[in-house]
Write a protein that binds this DNA or RNA. Structure first.
Lengths: 260, 260
DNA sequence: GGCTCAAACATGTCCGTACATGTAGGCAAA
DNA sequence: TTTGCCTACATGTACGGACATGTTTGAGCC
């Protein structure tokens, strides 16, 4: 419940964008409906046309609207919108979709980084990292395993937290470690025996795997995580367009003749 | 082979963005390297600062760069970039990653739309659609099953094509049916018996499922497709940030016991 | 060498204007 | 009624200026 003062403080174009986004999720414009014109909004908010365009540009980058020359912008609707924060914090997300989140720490250790971890976190050979494994639950049912590597500096902060804390990301933000960009690699793998044990399912069940590298505003990696979701528990949705495409398809490891 | 004339013809900011993107993928700036400043580029191309900002804005929406007040923009590197077209066309994508694409039409029929298809394609009860099933191969190995529903008007064009055509999407574009926006739902499911037969694997093997609704510039749905990839053949990557987030997480159908 | 601080630099926000280019709706003619 | 055209309207592109706010860097001092 970010109050109206936050709303007022931010820039003008954000205020316009927030209002439009709120109207869209509230259903005030049906899917495919056309939005007010730039000049109409400029008059309504008493701002310049450029400011209104900036607001629309932000919504377009979120995949909420489409626009073409000559015609008014239209609502693409689709799934409920989520902020970047909501995507990173499992518990915040769970509450937003009406479920009760829970978590259990399986292990937390400080050890030498593997080659992959060094590459993803962009740290030198011999560096040490903190590695955290957690099982996440929705309404009591285990649905996800989180295996996260933090660089030493960030991991030290994580290790100092109450293990039962809900959102590590939000606590880190309070401590000045901001997550602003992330790259996600999404594929499907069979559950390992350990996965099966932790999630209470049979081995080789389909798992939706999300590997993620998050960085702070300066581009420094602050987390490398491999999250494994039960196949029937979660889906990811992505919006893209000719104008703004953040999605790409990559070849996988290939036939598991012997296996990765 | 879009030649340099195309390059010249387009808008100034696209030219700047294209050059920057090309430099980035060529590795002229390493990951994390800082990019030229706005004023430097403005001088180099003899354009205004606003035009340069528009170019950067496009790259930010693609997840290629990050920027923050006061400091120069930085390269986020990450995976090779892909255009929207390359994402939609399997064969184009296959060639771009150095594989030999192939396809086999399993079935093409015209029938009444299901409830889901009517909803996704936004068409009236009793409408008819064209439904196409194809198996796609990489270097001879079947890796994906494509089950696509086209609205009647589009499907009629598809039905008139040579079944062995490589890219239906590109052929449709030539015929005036443009794909400009898409929404993707990605999850993991076990292979059905039919999937297993078509992909030559055992049933219940993990499948990466991508359901996709594509629309034309006016927001009219032109395709609803369910693509099933062999788990080890493909991965999707997504880039997002606080400023531009087109990715969201949705609850799945729940325990398959019966439930939900 | 290390520290402080201020200036130079870089991006963010906002304004205004001008013209290009595509869409949609209404009017008039066939 | 239908067709064709033309005129508003809407968005796209590009310019210019101004000020706000954050980062980096280097000079100068301890």
């Amino acid at each position: 419940m970010t109050d109206s003062r936050d709303h007022e403080q931010r820039s003008l174009y954000r205020r316009v964008a927030d209002d439009l986004r709120a109207d869209i999720v509230a259903g005030n414009y049906g899917a495919g409906a056309s939005l007010p014109s730039e000049s109409e909004l400029a008059a309504r908010y008493d701002v310049s046309r450029g400011t209104v365009r900036q607001a629309f540009s932000a919504l377009r980058a979120e995949g909420v609207i489409a626009s073409r020359r000559g015609a008014r912008r239209i609502v693409l609707s689709g799934p409920r919108l989520q902020s970047f924060t909501e995507l990173l914090s499992f518990s915040r997300w769970a509450r937003a979709v009406g479920e009760e989140p829970a978590g259990r720490v399986v292990s937390l250790e400080r050890r030498d980084a593997t080659a992959l971890e060094r590459e993803q976190l962009n740290i030198a050979d011999g560096s040490r990292i903190y590695h955290l494994t957690r099982v996440r639950m929705l309404s009591g049912r285990p649905v996800m395993i989180e295996r996260t590597a933090y660089p030493d500096r960030v991991g030290a902060l994580v290790a100092g937290m109450d293990p039962d804390i809900e959102s590590i990301t939000e606590r880190l933000a309070e401590l000045g470690v901001l997550f602003t960009d992330a790259e996600h690699i999404i594929d499907a793998v069979p559950a390992s025996t350990e996965d099966a044990r932790l999630l209470d399912v049979r081995p080789r069940v389909p798992i939706l795997r999300e590997r993620r590298r998050s960085t702070d505003p300066s581009g420094t990696p602050v987390e490398w995580s491999e999250d494994r979701y039960l196949g029937d528990a979660v889906a990811f949705t992505v919006h893209n367009s000719v104008a703004a495409n953040a999605l790409s398809r990559q070849p996988g490891p290939g036939p598991s003749t012997k296996a990765r």
